[in-house]
Design a protein around this nucleic acid. Structure first.
Lengths: 211, 211
DNA sequence: TAGATTGTTAATCGATTAACAATC
DNA sequence: TAGATTGTTAATCGATTAACAATC
């Protein structure tokens, strides 16, 4: 049943399914129907069945979906649990926060080191690990088979850092600088723009009700 | 020209226009056409003109758009520059990072205080300001006319905190806990799921090229 | 005026939803 | 078997893109 092209819209809903099913699993729920999911998640039941069928027929007519099984299928689809080795470039507020955040490690995303160009933060201890000088980035990426780069540096350096990381062989860039970083075909980029989401919130607060 | 209902898709592109126009303005560029914007931003020129026309006729035939003027219009539309007073609830990694991040303050979003329920972090200094005990939240929100709540607490507390903030009168919730917080009509919610974006990245890295 | 580029309508495309036959 | 619910096709809806008349 695997379609050859999955739309962005479908992909962006997968993490939400994964979160929901993890909750159900934690509660010990065995089975779930698309109509139950629909009611709980506020998505159309047809859409849920259609989304899931992009990747395979995980359900059973007259029964629904096995919670644990479906969760694990989506986990596999998303590539969660595969081992990723990442570096964080930029030891500012967000960089440090992500680096210290342990939930990612639990899902298999190992943030192995954090780098900065600013000598005044280099060698500063964060949770027992030291901020490394940017000069060591290349060696570290190569020696540790790093495949994922997290960019938390200032905007003006973001693209240059991305280019270097790509050159060093990383296959994914998770960028937090407020600029759309680009990379050559074959390297995946996710731009996370926190302020964009704040602006959308502020738009809604301003226009609430009317408009 | 103001349409009565602006789609989510259009709204989500506004911050990107704002970022782009700010760059142009910083470079001293006076005017820009939709085709130039299209080339630079990777969006269709028709779409850009249509998006902008949801809010008014900002351009001029044969000329294009005045960069500075258009930027300011979008700024107004997004409600940037209005004064918002926010509290951060949850002084973990992400909470501290957002609280310390000064860019928001520059745009008019004043993160006035940070709270936590955990006694071991309360009274800890962060950039000269102290983490306040959660017990003081209600008084602070009321006395300082806080209209925006930032939730960076653990998942299991997120909805309860949101409910309390709403009860105290905030008009917007910016939630970073990995759960979709809901609020009554009239209160706006933006759920930022960092791990969702990491999962989408990891999906792309896994399926790159094929699928 | 001629050239350029918007604002806007019409055409296309894709995503969502409804409906239902298949089947557990 | 009867009831429930999926998988999937068909219908609808909305968003994107193309085209072009309006106009600076």
């Amino acid at each position: 049943m695997r379609d050859n092209r999955i739309s962005e819209a479908v992909i962006s809903r997968l993490p939400k399914y994964y979160r929901y099913l993890s909750e159900l699993e934690a509660k010990g729920t065995q089975r779930v129907s698309s109509s139950k999911m629909s009611a709980d998640m506020g998505l159309n039941a047809s859409q849920i069945r259609r989304d899931l069928n992009c990747f395979g027929g995980f359900g059973q007519q007259g029964y629904g979906y096995q919670v644990n099984n479906l969760k694990n299928e989506i986990k596999k689809i998303l590539g969660i649990g595969k081992k990723y080795t990442a570096v964080v470039v930029g030891a500012g507020n967000i960089g440090q926060a992500l680096y210290k955040y342990t939930n990612f490690a639990e899902e298999g995303y190992n943030l192995a080191a954090i780098f900065d160009a600013d000598q005044s933060v280099v060698d500063k201890e964060i949770d027992g690990i030291t901020v490394r000088p940017i000069e060591e980035l290349a060696d570290f990426v190569i020696n540790n088979e790093v495949n994922l780069g997290v960019i938390t540096a200032p905007k003006r350096h973001a693209q240059r850092i991305a280019d270097e990381l790509v050159l060093l062989g990383v296959k994914g860039i998770w960028n937090f600088a407020p600029v759309d970083v680009v990379a050559r075909k074959g390297v995946c980029v996710e731009n996370v723009h926190l302020s964009d989401s704040l602006f959308v919130l502020s738009y809604r607060m301003r226009t609430n009700g009317e408009d």
